[in-house]
Simulated assay, not measured.
Amino acid sequence: MPWSTHAVDLRSDRVIKTFRPGSHAECEREWRALGLLAAYAPGLAPVPHSVDLAAEEPVVVMERVPGEPLRGRPLDDRRLRALAAAADELYSAVPADVLAGVPVRPDRQQRLIARIRAWVPQVRPRAGGEVGEAMDRGLAWLSRSGMDRAGRPNVPMVFGPGDGNLANYLWDGARVRVVDFEDSGLSDRPFELAEITEHVGGWTGPPLDVAAFLGLFDLTAAERARLPECRRLLALVWLFLLSFDDPRNPRNPPGTAERQAARLSGLLA
């Protein structure tokens, strides 16, 4: 999700990530993830140096890893394959017995559905044209999808970073490394892949080739069935988020919400 909970101080050899007051859970998730990946996927993410969870503004200090963010850059076949390899390594890194003790990541599907339903009375009355129509189609799909049923989906659980922003995937010329784990935790591959494919940063610049990217993953039949539903849910979330943009002080280029409406409608077709 696109709201910031931290400030980042980039040094030559380290990164100091300072969280806002009250963001101790985010800091704890970041620290846990860095420790797990240092143990089970060394080199994929920054090495953790230190943490202060007792401070009013908790702090994590970590290695600064080399590389340029993939967001905003065309992804050729080499970069696309490196992105998929990094994601695949990340999802499978934590052994099952260790993963069993990792808390579920925030903003899983039930939480997102609850947010959407809370947003409807605020946003829908002022969303007109194709945006409003796509919202209605998305809400109608959601009501019959069964995604709000309690319980875990019938797919393998994995370690998920919780943020699909391509700015968190760094290309160093040979491989992709991953940063930013404040929303990490227990998840599943379809949900995490949908986080990447539906993130607004994946198409407002040079677009991610979604079909080619997803084709690089060996998903089970159950995961393949779940993936389109997760993509629709995340696309609907982004349509609402983009509809909150203040036209007097927009954060996104004009027409972004309308383009998202078209993307959601395509996923619902």
Rank of each mutant, 00 (worst) to 15 (best):
V8L: 15
D9F: 12
D13K: 06
R14F: 04
T18H: 04
F19P: 13
R20V: 14
R20N: 09
E26K: 08
E30W: 09
W31A: 13
Y40H: 15
A41V: 05
P42H: 06
L44I: 03
A45K: 08
A45D: 12
P48M: 05
P48D: 12
H49A: 13
D52G: 10
D52S: 12
V59E: 14
E63N: 03
V65F: 01
V65D: 01
G67M: 05
E68Q: 14
P74L: 07
P74C: 07
L75H: 00
R79E: 05
A82Q: 05
A82K: 04
D88Y: 03
L90G: 04
L90W: 05
Y91H: 15
V94G: 08
P95W: 11
D97E: 15
A100C: 05
A100P: 07
V104A: 13
V104E: 14
P106V: 04
R111E: 15
I116V: 15
I116D: 02
W119C: 07
Q122R: 13
V123R: 00
R124M: 12
R124G: 01
R124W: 09
R126M: 10
E133K: 11
A134D: 05
D136T: 15
D136E: 15
A140L: 13
W141G: 12
G146V: 13
M147K: 08
D148V: 01
D148C: 03
D148E: 15
P153W: 10
V155W: 02
P156Y: 08
V158A: 10
F159H: 10
P161F: 03
G164F: 03
A167T: 01
Y169W: 14
D172P: 14
A174T: 14
A174F: 04
R177K: 01
V179E: 01
E182I: 04
G185M: 03
S187R: 03
F191K: 00
L193V: 14
A194F: 10
E195Q: 13
I196K: 01
T197N: 04
T197F: 00
G201F: 06
G202I: 01
W203Q: 04
T204N: 02
P207S: 06
A211H: 09
F213N: 00
L214K: 06
F217L: 00
D218F: 02
A221P: 10
P228L: 11
L233C: 02
L234D: 07
P247H: 09
R248H: 11
P253I: 12
G255T: 07
A257M: 03
A262T: 14
L264Y: 03
G266P: 03
L267S: 08
L267R: 13
